[in-house]
């Protein structure tokens, strides 16, 4: 079994995990959760860093730089927005369904 197949199994398990984690969530958390998952795919910044780190030509550097700026904004902005939304859950909520 080569690496591609191992990666596909990772993909399968991760997809199942994502589905399971969300499946029983109260409606009041839909928006914060969307924002939270938006923050988590900000990990793309790491991928953009790897690309920029291996960039050789000026064009590659420019695209890589652009990618890191966007990825960092995704992560930082996503975190700040999610945190602001969740601040509202400070007091113990009723826990609606």
């Amino acid at each position: 079994m080569d690496a591609t197949w191992a990666a596909l199994y990772i993909f399968l398990l991760a997809a199942f995990t994502g589905y399971e984690v969300i499946s029983r969530v109260p409606v009041i958390l839909h928006t914060p959760l969307m924002s939270g998952s938006n923050f988590i795919h900000g990990i793309v910044v790491v991928g953009a860093m790897v690309v920029l780190g291996h960039a050789e030509t000026p064009l590659e550097q420019a695209i890589g730089f652009f990618g890191v700026v966007l990825g960092a904004a995704n992560a930082a902005g996503g975190y700040a927005v999610t945190e602001r939304m969740l601040e509202m859950f400070e007091r113990k909520p009723k826990g609606g369904q």
Binding site: I10, A14, A15, G18, M34, S37, I40, V46
Partner: peptide, 15 residues
Amino acid sequence: LIVAGTVVGAAGTLL
């Protein structure tokens, strides 16, 4: 990236 992206892809689709 694979794990975080895929988890969000699946969770986001369900959401």
